[in-house]
Simulated assay, not measured.
Amino acid sequence: LSTFLLSGSLTAIRYRDEILRPLVRPYAGAVGPGFLLMQDNARPHVAGVCQQYLQDEGIEAMDWPARSPDLNPIEHIWDIMSRSINQHHVAPQTVQELVDALVQVWEEIPQKTIRHLIRSMPRCCKEVMQVRGGHTQY
């Protein structure tokens, strides 16, 4: 995590080389047929170089409506982490302090919370489909 945070903004090339190639591709292979990548419309995700890589590797990505609520459980985890860090009396002053705080908060998140978020996804997706990508409680 600290190496990733210290190396700057996430570009399409970095996303392909540091996330898709070493993490997503092997995971997709382990899951096998039926693997569907969920990612939002962040610029690195939709960049041509990344879309081409996914196509070349035969990795299918979920179509993501432009204005839909974020359905990725990790976004809820980021929110939990952000709120936890903001509750500390002294905000991190350096990148390294932020990295240390993020790692500490990440390790403190109960596995039960993560399981709950993952298990809520079918319900969330169903609700978003019912409102055709519009606003939901999520």
Rank of each mutant, 00 (worst) to 15 (best):
A66Y: 04
N72P: 08
C125P: 03
M38R: 12
Y138P: 07
G8L: 01
Q87E: 15
Q52K: 09
T136H: 08
H76W: 08
D17E: 07
I77Y: 05
V105S: 04
E18A: 10
S82L: 14
A66N: 06
V99L: 05
G8V: 00
S2E: 15
I114W: 02
Y15M: 05
H135K: 13
W78I: 07
T94C: 08
E97N: 11
P65V: 10
Q130R: 11
M129T: 10
A42L: 11
P92Y: 01
L10S: 02
E75C: 09
Q51S: 12
A28C: 05
L98Q: 03
P92A: 10
I59R: 06
Y15V: 03
P65W: 03
E127L: 08
I118G: 03
S68L: 03
L37H: 11
W78P: 04
P44T: 01
V90F: 13
V31Q: 04
R132P: 01
G134D: 09
D100Y: 06
G48Y: 12
V24Y: 00
L10F: 01
A12H: 05
V99P: 05
V46I: 15
D70N: 14
Q51I: 07
C50G: 08
M129H: 08
N72F: 05
T136F: 03
P73V: 03
P73D: 00
A61S: 15
Q39I: 12
I85W: 04
Q137L: 13
S82A: 15
I85T: 03
E60P: 07
Q104G: 09
L20W: 01
I114N: 02
V24R: 00
Q130S: 14
G58H: 08
D70Q: 10
S120N: 13
D56V: 11
R119S: 13
V103H: 11
I85Q: 09
P69Y: 06
H135T: 07
V46K: 12
H116R: 14
L1Q: 12
D79Y: 08
R83W: 09
K126C: 12
R25F: 10
R119T: 12
E107G: 06
Q130M: 12
H116V: 10
F35C: 04
R83N: 15
Y53Q: 03
P22G: 03
L102Y: 02
I19Q: 00
M81A: 08
I77T: 11
L6G: 14
A91M: 14
A47V: 05
P69D: 11
I109H: 01
I13V: 12
D40P: 06
I80N: 07
Q39E: 15
P33R: 12
C125V: 15
H88Y: 13
T136R: 10
E60K: 14
L71T: 07
N72D: 11
C50D: 02
I19G: 04
I109R: 02
I109G: 01
P26N: 03
Q130V: 05
I74G: 08
Q93Y: 00
V128Y: 00
T3Y: 11
M81R: 06
S82H: 12
R83I: 10
H76I: 08
T3N: 13
S82P: 06
V31R: 06
R43N: 09
R14Q: 02
D100E: 15
W78M: 04
D100M: 07
A30S: 15
